[in-house]
C-alpha cells in the first residue's frame, strides 16, 4: 500500500446499497479516486473490520444492535464521518416502521402470520436485536458531514469526497442538494 493515500471505509447499515451504487456512478472519476485513496472496510473490498481511516462513509439508518456497533467502530476509527443518503441522514425508509410497536411486529411476522404458524420469534444470540425505532446516524454518534438524497447523486458524493480529499470543507452547492 502506498504512502500518503487517504484511507476510506464505507458501510451500509439499514440501507439498500443504493448509495454505494451511486458512489460507483461517478464513472470515470473512479480512476481519479483510486489514484488518491485506499479503501479499508467496504463492501467493495470485503474487509470486515474497519481500521484507522481518514474518511468513513455511512449509508443507512440505525435499526439494530449490530448497526450501532458498526457505526461506533467507524466513529472510533475514522477521522471524518459522513452520513450518505436519506436513511443515514433521516432514518429514511426503514424509519417508516417507527409508528409501529416492534414487539407487535415480531409477533405479527413470526407468530400470527399463517405461513409461520408453528414458528417462534427467533432468539439466536447471533442475530442482532432490533431497536424499538430506526434512527438517523447522528442520533447515535457525532457526524461531521451530511449528503442527503435517495440516493445522493454521484456528483454530490463526488463533490464532498473531492473536497475532503483536497482538504477543503465540503460544500454542496445548489442543485446538488436533493432530498429524494
Amino acid at each position: 500500500m502506498s504512502e500518503g493515500r487517504i484511507r476510506i471505509a464505507t458501510a451500509s447499515l439499514a440501507g439498500c446499497f443504493g448509495c454505494h451504487m451511486s458512489l460507483l456512478d461517478i464513472d470515470e472519476r473512479l480512476f481519479e479516486l483510486i489514484e488518491r485513496v485506499e479503501f479499508d472496510r467496504t463492501p467493495l473490498t470485503d474487509i470486515k473490520h474497519c481500521g484507522p481511516c481518514d474518511i468513513g462513509l455511512i449509508e443507512g439508518g440505525v435499526c439494530n444492535a449490530e448497526n450501532v456497533e458498526v457505526l461506533r467502530a467507524f466513529r472510533r476509527n475514522c477521522k471524518i464521518l459522513v452520513a450518505v443518503g436519506a436513511c443515514a441522514v433521516t432514518g429514511g425508509l426503514p424509519a417508516q416502521r417507527n409508528h409501529l410497536d416492534i414487539g407487535a411486529c415480531l409477533q405479527e411476522v413470526y407468530l400470527t402470520e399463517p405461513s409461520l404458524s408453528n414458528g417462534q420469534i427467533p432468539n439466536d444470540p447471533e442475530l442482532p436485536l432490533p431497536l424499538d425505532k430506526v434512527h438517523p446516524i447522528h442520533e447515535v454518534v457525532k457526524v461531521d458531514y451530511f449528503i442527503p438524497g435517495c440516493p445522493p447523486s454521484a456528483d454530490a458524493i463526488w463533490k464532498v469526497l473531492s473536497d475532503l480529499i483536497a482538504g477543503r470543507t465540503p460544500r454542496l452547492t445548489q442543485g446538488l442538494i436533493q432530498y429524494d
Binding site: V89, T90, G91, A95, H99, K133, P136, P148
Partner: peptide, 9 residues
C-alpha cells in the same frame, strides 16, 4: 443538509 436535532417520530 440534515435535521440535526433528534427526530420526534
Amino acid at each position: 443538509l440534515t435535521a440535526g436535532f433528534r427526530h420526534f417520530f
